[in-house]
Computed example of a mutant assay.
Amino acid sequence: MFDLEQDYARYHDNIYRFIYFLTLDAVLAEDLMQETFIRAFNGRQSFRQQSNTLTWLRTIARNLVYDDMKRKKLIRFITFQKQHQPLQLALTPEQLLHTKEEIQWLYEGIAKLKFEYRAAIVLRKIEELSIKETAEILGWNEAKVRNNTERGMKELQKRMRGERDG
């Protein structure tokens, strides 16, 4: 059963990060994260526990992001960086700077992908979810998850090569 205090403490970072990667807006991600938990609390009786709580919360969050995008009819692209990824401490200052630049460059490339590719890559490659979990969260079949992940990765590689060469 969904417990607001316990599940918020346990999952709010995951939900915030998921929404942030999809919206690329820290303030909006915070608002939609809060709204996700409000909706989950209000709809807790409908949670049949056919999936785990985090998957259910991500599905609610995904729906809120989709609704927000439909309402605004735009996707804004800004640079972002995965803040929870630890950097190796054995790096020299020059290597550390280069690593941070590489991470920034990668996430800028992801931000330029169409939304479906970005959503698939965020869930499969960054959040490391299974194809089944990703399909459940996005409301897609598993083939669509595989196709969008593969196409997104190919597009990302093409963009990254082009920007690197250009």
Rank of each mutant, 00 (worst) to 15 (best):
P86S: 12
L24E: 05
T55E: 07
E116H: 07
D3Q: 10
L28E: 07
E116C: 04
L96E: 11
I137F: 02
T36D: 04
T36I: 01
Y11V: 07
Y8N: 04
A143F: 10
V145F: 04
E127D: 14
M33A: 08
A61M: 05
E102Q: 15
A29G: 03
L32Q: 03
I137G: 05
N148C: 00
F21V: 04
I126L: 11
Y16S: 06
V145S: 04
Y117C: 04
D13P: 10
F77H: 13
G109S: 06
D13Q: 13
L106D: 02
V27D: 15
Q49F: 10
Q88K: 13
L138N: 00
L96I: 13
A9E: 14
A120G: 06
K100C: 12
F115L: 07
F37T: 02
D31S: 05
T92D: 13
Y117P: 01
R62V: 09
T36K: 00
R10S: 13
K132Q: 09
E127C: 02
G139N: 01
I78R: 15
G43Q: 09
R118C: 02
L91W: 10
S51A: 08
D68M: 10
R62S: 14
T55I: 15
D68T: 14
L87R: 11
L28V: 08
K70T: 12
I110E: 06
R39W: 07
G109L: 03
Y8W: 12
R71G: 08
H12S: 14
G43S: 09
M1C: 06
I19M: 13
Q45V: 12
K70C: 08
N14I: 01
E127V: 01
M69E: 14
F47A: 03
W56P: 10
T99C: 10
Y66D: 13
V27T: 07
M69G: 11
I126W: 06
A111V: 07
Y66V: 13
D165K: 07
W56F: 12
F2M: 00
R76M: 15
E133S: 08
I78K: 11
E155D: 06
R48Q: 14
K82S: 15
M1Q: 05
K82A: 14
N42M: 05
Y66L: 12
F21A: 09
T53C: 12
Q85T: 15
D165S: 09
N63I: 04
D25A: 05
E102V: 13
Y11G: 05
L4W: 06
V27M: 00
H84K: 13
I19L: 09
Q157N: 06
V122S: 04
H12N: 14
E136F: 02
R48A: 12
L22Q: 11
D165T: 01
R124F: 02
A40I: 00
I103C: 08
E128A: 08
A29V: 09
K100I: 12
Y20T: 02
D25N: 12
E108R: 15
E155V: 01
K72C: 07
A143C: 03
G152S: 03
A119K: 03
I121P: 01
G162E: 10
T79N: 15
L156M: 01
F77K: 12
T134H: 00
F2K: 02
P93N: 11
F77A: 09
E108F: 15
D7G: 08
V27L: 06
K154F: 03
K82H: 15
E155R: 05
Q95I: 11
T149N: 01
I126R: 06
M160W: 00
E108K: 13
E136P: 00
